[in-house]
Amino acid sequence: MEHEITLIVNGVPRRTGVPARRLLSDCLRHDLGLTGTHVGCEHGVCGCCTVLLDGRPVRSCLTFAVTVDGAEITTVEGLADADGGLSAVQRAFAECHGLQCGFCTPGFLCTVTALLRENPAPTEDEVIDGISGNLCRCTGYQNIVKAVHRAAELLAEEA
């Protein structure tokens, strides 16, 4: 049986029918065509599938789409400014070489966006702690940590 749901994705209301078992990650990727959200494990460990649900990072592979009917969701596609300019977090990742293959990147970007909203000037330990739920197999994290600090700097400059 299909359930009609409405998700406000990146500010746009999207209606779709989903079976109860449809994962939010699959719904975003395959029903709504927003393939920027990636799936690295489908069991809640890697963080690739992280999206913002009403502003808070969640693992979309552990969320049934039907349970978030009516919610506001931000995916990596919604992080850039309205005019398409990259967000401070996105720019910092580019500047600091915080990505290689880019597969984990959308999850990190969403996580870090929420992290800096909550804590605009995190310490080194707070940064490491803040990203400690996301796996990256390419970068060794060093440049991701650097990018988070840099993003905080950019955000402060632009505030």
Partner: peptide
Amino acid sequence: VQRREDPRLLTGNGRY
């Protein structure tokens, strides 16, 4: 030099 592949990968426009 900053990477030329990054803009698409940072915006969800990579194609895996």
